[in-house]
Each structure stands twice: as C-alpha cells, then as structure tokens.
Amino acid sequence: MYRQTEIVSDVTQLPPLGGGGAGYFTINVGPQHPATHGVLHLVITLNGETIINIEPHLGYIHRSIEKMCESLTYRQFIYVTSRMDYLSAHINNHACALCVEKGMQIEIPARAQVIRVLMDELTRIASHELWWGAMAMDVGAFTPFFHAFRERETINDIMEETCGARLTMNYMVPGGVMHDLHPNFQKRVKSFLELYKSKVHEYDELVTGNIIFQNRMKGVGVISAEDGIRNSRRFICKIYGAAEGDESIYSHYRTVN
C-alpha cells in the first residue's frame, strides 16, 4: 500500500522556510508534468534545492505487457516489444528475437545479423538525439532540441524506407528480419553519417561545451560506482564508466569516456 502523503491543513504548522531553520518542503511532481516525460508521480521532500527524500508512485502507464504475452505467440509478441521503449524499438525487438532464437537454438543468416546490428546502432543514435535534445530543453535551452531532431528525423526517414514505420518498427523477428533492406539504405546511411560528422562539433559548442549547461549539470545527481551496481543502474554505470578492476564489463566505456 502507498504511504499516504501527509497533507498539512494548517499552514502555520509547516516548518519555516529559509531563515536558518530546517525548512523542508514537499512538492508533488506529476503524474502529468512536462518534466516527467511520461506519467510518473513523485513526492519530493526538498531542503532548498537538495532532494532529501523522494517517493515514486509508479504504474500509471503500466500496460501489463507480461500478462499480455502469456497468451501471445513469440511472433506476435514482437509487436509489443516495439512499444516497451518506443525510442529504441529495434533494440527491444532484437532482444526478444534473440531470446527466442537462443531458446530454440536457431542460428540466423549472417546478413540478417549484420542488418540487425546496423539497425540497432542507427536506433541508438536516434534515441540519444532525443535524449540530449530534451535534456537541454529541460534546463532551458530550446535550440538544441531542433538540431537533435533534424538528425533524428533523418534516421527515421531511413527507417521508414526499410520498415515502413518511424517509431514502432517491428522489423526484427525470431529467425531474422522481416525483409531485406531498401535499395537506398546504403546511400542514405552514408550521407547521414557525413552530415552527422560535420555537425557533432556544433552540439559540443552549443550544449556540452556551454558554460551555462555545465554549471547547471556538474555535480547534480552523482551516483557512485558502487551504488550504481548495487542498484543495478546499468545505463548510468555505462555512461560514467563505473566499475572496479580493469576486468570489468564497463572498462570499455571508461576508456571511451
């Protein structure tokens, strides 16, 4: 059961804000809020700008995917995996397809394997474009969002040609991929890569090299390597190259960063 958040009816009962006292402040973010990027309710206790306690209320957009797949075939289930993380549909399709193939001990054709990896990598770039664009927007910079989306749209166009979809691709299936790549694929990916390489330095100037952005972000939400692994925040661990010992699975990411 959720703990009921205390609602103070008498305002005079609240501890004083500022003025040296321990003025904790409780705010509700969400469920509908531009910064939650989805439906998430957070009850946050603040001391100034520092979060003292945070209580997430989840489940608003839980679609019972686990229950659904009890009655779907593996082939049908691919369509559901596209919607798990709709920014990286290919990658989720891939994971599901791999799982089925591993279980049934099927080896898929080499060409399909290569196509899958190409699609995954393009998806990953597109997903990151949205991430950093929205991140910059959340801290108050609007322009980077458009730059990020220009690249993201280019990738989506490439995807659309091959898979017929821009978001939920359903392209990878157990046994391989739905059909071969579009004849334009190679040409368009090459021209995209040229465009992307010529623009990357702009993003650095605009966002990551920007002193305002840096001041806003540095030291915020720091998670130690140990905490990262203990809480199994794999994604964060990857970004910050968290690990102990060079044998670790994250050492690669550390050298990259």
Partner: peptide
C-alpha cells in the same frame, strides 16, 4: 508494500495464471 498496483488492491495477484479480471482485461 504495493509498488505499481493502486491503493486498496487486495488479495488478487495479477501475474498468477488463474487471475481473472473481466472488466479491465
């Protein structure tokens, strides 16, 4: 305590195979 399910959800466990919910499912 409950994580995803709403307040007041008692007794029924949705991912048990014999779970039935004719209204929402």
């Amino acid at each position: 305590r409950l994580l995803i399910l709403p307040d007041g959800w008692e007794g029924k466990n949705p991912l048990r195979k014999d779970f039935e919910d004719p209204v929402n499912m």
